[in-house]
Amino acid sequence: MKSLAELQEIRNRTIGNLTMRKEEDDAVRVVVGMATCGIAAGARPVMSAFVEEIAKRNLANVTVAQTGCIGVCRLEPIVEVTLPGQDKVTYVKMSPEKVARVVAEHIVNKQVVTEYTIGAAE
């Protein structure tokens, strides 16, 4: 059983090698729509998948945030990905499986996954 004592150990271990992260110029920004429409369509597992993938790959320059209704309820879950110095890319009807590809191809390899974008859906 996990305990708060164990958290204390993790803390002591982690404090030494804290990575400087976020708010830098090279930051990648991921925003997940988490309004009622997004949540009903499956935004929770999509958000979880982003957080997990990014943590697993230790992508310290990526911030994941949530926002309200992005405005196209029928295409939820919607995710916006912005690479530094580039226009934002809007992905629609996202799922945890699609998240793995977006992280690997777009965030890591800088290749937009065109087939998942709002442009391809409309």
Binding site: I10, R11, R13, T14, I15, L18, V51, A55, K56, N58
Partner: peptide, 10 residues
């Protein structure tokens, strides 16, 4: 004590 909840292990 200042370590972020977003740290992977945490």
């Amino acid at each position: 004590g200042g370590v972020s909840l977003a740290e992977y292990e945490v």
